[in-house]
Amino acid sequence: MKRRYMGRDKLYTLKKDFPTDIDFDDAAENPSLIIRSLPYFPKIMHSLNTQHKFDMLSNITAVDYDDYFEVVYDLTSRINSEELMVKVPLAKASPALETMTALWPEADFHEREQYDLMGIIFLHHPNLQRILLPDDFIGYPLQKSYRQAEKEGENG
């Protein structure tokens, strides 16, 4: 059995529920869901969790683009055998969004890791502390602006 990407019809139904808040690239083969409005983000995720049965938050990534951060949620539905990529662009000035620990308890370590390395703040997280780096570490090393040690700097 092969897992499918979330069907386009379901994306359209979701779009109907949140017409202005979500977006997806219609031309792409496997369009990822882009959430435009932060206040609706928990609601959308809740609907994905309950209505569309995405029972597993496989991965959380944050990407540092030139002018914005993007938090990416890789959702998996073991029940429907589907997967979905949800992207949340965040402003560079205030990279903060709601935690997903209530919906998916596994998000705990994922979110702490992104906070630790990328500086994304997950609001209302039960224990948002550095997880890999020492507590007194300054800066967020995965941000592109973070200066690496000199030797690593230029070589490829």
Partner: peptide
């Protein structure tokens, strides 16, 4: 954890 953190994700970007 983190005592063996080598920043592999960052290293890979380069």
């Amino acid at each position: 954890m983190g005592y063996l953190h080598r920043g592999i994700e960052k290293l890979m970007e380069a």
